Simulated assay, not measured.
Amino acid sequence: MNFNFLSPVADTVLAHNELLPMQALGRKLKIHSAQEGIPDLQDVSVAIIGVLENRNDINYIGEEFELNEVRKSFYALFPGSWNTTIADLGDINRGESVEDTYFALKTTVSILIQKKITPIILGGSQDLTYAIYRAYDNLMPMVNIVNVDSHFDIGDSAKPIKSKSFVGKIILDEPYNLFNYATLGYQTYFNSQEEIDLMERLYFEAYRLGNVSKDITIVEPVMRDANVVSIDLGVVKASEVSLKQRLSPNGLDGKEICAISRYAGISNKVSAFGIFEYKPSYDDEVTAMLISQMLWYFIEGVNCRVKDDNFLDDNNHQKFTTLAGDEELVFYKSTKTGRWWIEIPFLANVNNKLKKHTLLPCTHKDYLNACNGKMPSRWHKAYQKNSL
């Protein structure tokens, strides 16, 4: 197994780990160390990888990047009632060029996904999401990405890739594998009207910060449909993070970002989860602890996964049909979990991009709205995209 790109967890972190109680997370992980090498991944289902690459950060001025404080915080937490085996595979160091780092990350993520291990990527700049997306090139025909961010990060794809302009590359670079892109927690004043209009034209999903904060449960169906979840720590409001990390007085709070991480974990489809734009600094404890708690909630979610999307057996779900306008809408409700889906009809004589995506996750509220004649916006966007 080719994990040549990974360097071991620092000895200072491992020494700190030895002082922790036996019940702590750090004492239960399989850790890549200089002494022992890469651990056996036989029964591992979640693997943490650090990526020490931040050269494409728009504010990069040559600073080094490391994750030791995050690891110390995470190792010191206590696990929940989990049956998941977790590995910390160490770090991917900066390559000769940023493209070399991308290649190393793409290769490592691809290997892990094929081994049915969910990688958690802790990174510098968020353009690393592009390399994670490319890891799926030979794994599946269509990929859904959720970006938890105050910016859309589309940018100008003709210009070199940066931390605030990587999505344009994902949309326009071959092979064209992106099916849906959703942004959670965007703030309008950080995004140009052109980008907002483009999101609309491409039938991508965008959820404003106010809507997410008002009802955090709207995140769940979006996450249920995601393959890759990428979180920019800049989406968290300034009062929740350390001095160097503060970007905006408005944003998600610690509770909300942890709830979003848990929703990502619960999703049966999410196979790669990344947290980016971490800025280590001398007053680092609070950001490192926030990232640790986000990791904890993601893994907690993974432990709570329930296979409830087998629609071949009628005993697994209830079916509801309602009219909204001229459309007959068909909903399914899982008898196991109570989660809802809506059917997207195949369009005759159209090259159908959706393939397996004919059932779209939704909420009970979507069903109630449809009963009152209101078309769910997720259904409308997926239907339009399918007819392009």
Results as ranks from 00 to 15, higher is better:
residue 278 Y to V: 09
residue 361 P to H: 04
residue 326 D to Y: 12
residue 99 E to S: 15
residue 155 G to C: 05
residue 184 L to D: 11
residue 360 L to H: 09
residue 358 T to G: 09
residue 382 A to F: 06
residue 211 N to F: 07
residue 21 P to A: 05
residue 126 Q to E: 07
residue 262 R to D: 00
residue 385 K to P: 02
residue 121 I to R: 07
residue 200 E to A: 12
residue 383 Y to M: 10
residue 5 F to E: 15
residue 153 D to Q: 12
residue 96 E to N: 05
residue 327 E to C: 00
residue 217 T to L: 10
residue 140 M to V: 13
residue 300 E to V: 03
residue 19 L to T: 12
residue 260 I to N: 04
residue 164 K to F: 10
residue 75 Y to W: 06
residue 38 I to C: 06
residue 64 E to M: 04
residue 49 I to S: 10
residue 217 T to N: 04
residue 38 I to T: 11
residue 373 G to H: 00
residue 270 V to I: 10
residue 36 E to V: 04
residue 366 D to H: 09
residue 4 N to T: 05
residue 95 G to M: 12
residue 315 N to K: 14
residue 214 K to F: 14
residue 150 S to L: 10
residue 365 K to S: 15
residue 201 R to C: 15
residue 119 P to N: 06
residue 125 S to Q: 07
residue 148 V to L: 06
residue 174 E to Y: 14
residue 301 G to M: 04
residue 173 D to N: 15
residue 28 K to R: 15
residue 348 A to P: 12
residue 66 E to V: 05
residue 69 E to V: 01
residue 83 N to R: 09
residue 101 T to R: 09
residue 274 G to L: 03
residue 64 E to L: 12
residue 97 S to K: 05
residue 104 A to W: 06
residue 246 R to S: 03
residue 360 L to A: 08
residue 118 T to D: 12
residue 52 L to C: 14
residue 338 G to M: 06
residue 186 Y to T: 08
residue 372 N to L: 02
residue 194 E to L: 05
residue 244 K to N: 10
